[in-house]
């Protein structure tokens, strides 16, 4: 009984290790494919379209509402301390540092990540990947690498749009509805939000999230059991693992960047 339990634990541990190994192998192979990708930019453009352009609507709408909520909530808290002029700082800092990169990554994991996993998993299940391999075309370089870099490039741009729209949303609510002074909304923001500390770090975060979310999504598809059940499980795992990885990494990155 005990031995059986230990053996099961060992097996699953080995399974996790093996999967981690395969995942890193895949990441390495995709990174090595960048040279070939540069010679065929059209492949990359299509993938930026799939991840980026098709996500714009959800990103802009979410960003607007998150910014508006921040404006409302921030105003009620700050006005208790007579510091409603700092609303701009609060909205901008929380968007640029945290909410922009994190919420964008979560939305992309849900919208584009799951689609990537399902696409790759189905291509595997329908032998399209093997078919490519038999045509002497490397499916990692031809299919996975463009999707990977498409995600990595699109993510920081989407996050920037999210934050920018959010700041405007906060402005509409704070200045337009609640009567915060427009001048102090912007000037306080500008004096307190630091380019190196906040903007650059936010962009770094979203690049890291872009790598992690697309990598997880592609790997889950590529490693999926090639049946309809296997693909559906892989799609779920892709979103769950992607979201957990984003939140966990966000803590680590925040501690490294702002925790001195």
């Amino acid at each position: 009984m005990l031995l059986e339990g230990l053996a099961r634990l060992g097996r699953s541990g080995l399974g996790v290790l093996a999967r981690l190994g395969r995942g890193h192998q895949l990441l390495g192979a995709m990174l090595l494919g960048v040279g070939e990708l540069l010679r065929r930019p059209r492949l990359l453009i299509v993938q930026i379209f799939n991840v980026g352009v098709l996500s714009i609507l959800i990103i802009v709408v979410s960003g607007l509402f998150v910014g508006m909520v921040l404006g409302l909530q921030g105003y009620y808290v700050l006005s208790q301390f007579g510091a409603a002029e700092s609303l701009g700082v609060m909205v901008a800092a929380s968007l640029v540092r945290e909410l922009g990169p994190v919420v964008t990554a979560l939305l992309v994991a849900g919208r584009a990540g799951s689609a990537l996993t399902a696409e790759i998993g189905l291509m595997k299940a329908t032998e399209q990947l093997s078919g490519l391999e038999m045509m002497a075309v490397d499916p990692v370089r031809r299919i996975l690498t463009p999707r990977f870099f498409g995600g990595v490039i699109a993510m920081p741009l989407l996050a920037a749009m999210f934050s920018a729209v959010g700041v405007l949303g906060g402005y509409f609510v704070g200045v337009g509805l609640l009567g915060v002074d427009a001048g102090s909304y912007w000037s306080q923001m500008q004096s307190k939000v630091d380019f190196d500390q906040d903007i650059v770090n936010g962009v770094i975060k979203s690049v890291v999230f872009g790598v992690v979310v697309t990598w997880i999504a592609l790997f889950q598809g590529y490693d999926a059991v090639p049946t309809s059940e296997g693909v559906s499980r892989a799609t779920t795992r892709s979103v769950v693992h992607g979201a957990l990885a984003v939140l966990g990494l966000d803590f680590v990155l925040t501690a490294l960047m702002f925790g001195d």
């Binding site: 291509m123 329908t126 032998e127 399209q128 093997s130 078919g131 490519l132 038999m134």
Partner: peptide, 8 residues
């Protein structure tokens, strides 16, 4: 391939 494996 059995399924044809055409790129869909």
């Amino acid at each position: 391939f059995q399924s044809g494996a055409l790129l869909t």
